Simulated scan of single mutants.
Amino acid sequence: MDTTTGPKEKEVEPAEGGADGAPARRDPEGVRRDILAAAGEVFAERGLSGARIDEIAARTRTSKRMIYYYFGDKEGLYRACLEAAYDEVRRGEEALDLGGLPPAEALARLVAFTFDHHRRHPAFIRMVMIENIHRAAHLRASRVAAERNRAAVARLTEILRRGEAEGVFRPGVDPLELHWHISALSFFNVSNRPTFSALFGDELFSEEAQARLRAHAVEMILALVRQEEPGDDDQA
């Protein structure tokens, strides 16, 4: 078990070279991003208990000492990786500029983005699965994760508000429940691929099949929120 603790908060940033002995560049944010990228890969592959700071340092241009300087200890680094992974999703959503789109188009784009993002970032899905094994203890301890992720529900709240005002979405749709549905459709596609493929084959994971599943996810979410047109109900 990696028991090394980090330095005191007032310690000056170490002036040392990278793992190859080259002089360190004064780019604290760049060093931090490099560490987070490497650590995220290792945690996704090995979990919190299996990850080693030595291996993480070996995948960066820095050292164990610098990792402890920036993140304190292994759990602090793991928590920072979780925060960064969720932040990447939220930043991707922000970049969609959904406020300028009609509500149905905005929601469709958000669902498609979520499906594609999760598919393209299986390490993120593995990190979330690992954190669920830990019963979200590290996310609960995060000072920024909950606040940052509220943006996802706020974004859906705004889309639903506009859709209801325009008469295209039915009233009373809960944005948190809708976020759950979107996450479930997108998450399972990645988290359960190994077991699903072992039982039923890889047919649904071809590019063509994945495009169909993404379209189905969009259709299902839109069907869930759409306002019923007169005459939609079956008549006796």
Score class of each variant (00 low, 15 high):
Lys64His: 03
Tyr78Val: 04
Val153Met: 04
Gly100Cys: 06
Ala39Trp: 15
Gly21Trp: 02
Ser142Asn: 12
Ser63Asp: 12
Pro122Lys: 12
Ala57Asp: 02
Met66Arg: 00
Leu96Val: 08
Ser49Thr: 10
Ala123Cys: 10
Ala151Glu: 08
Leu96His: 14
His134Gln: 01
Ala44Val: 13
Glu94Asp: 10
Val144Pro: 15
Glu147Asn: 06
Glu29Gly: 02
Ala95Val: 08
Asn132Ala: 08
Phe124Trp: 02
Ile53Gly: 01
Ala19Met: 06
Gly17Gln: 10
Ala106Glu: 06
Ala152Trp: 12
Gly100Tyr: 00
Arg25Tyr: 13
Leu48Ile: 04
Ala106His: 06
Ala95Tyr: 02
Leu98Ser: 01
Asp97Phe: 12
Ile67Val: 07
Met129Cys: 09
Glu83Trp: 14
Ala141Leu: 15
Leu82Asn: 08
Pro122Ala: 10
Phe71Lys: 09
Gly92Val: 00
Gly92Thr: 08
Ala24Leu: 13
Glu94Pro: 03
Val111Asn: 05
Ala104Thr: 03
Gly100Pro: 10
Ala38Asn: 08
Ala44Met: 11
Gly17Met: 14
Val111Ala: 04
Arg148Leu: 00
Pro102Met: 03
Ala106Arg: 09
Arg120Leu: 09
His117Gly: 01
Leu98His: 07
Arg119Cys: 01
Phe71Pro: 13
Tyr86Pro: 01
Leu77Thr: 09
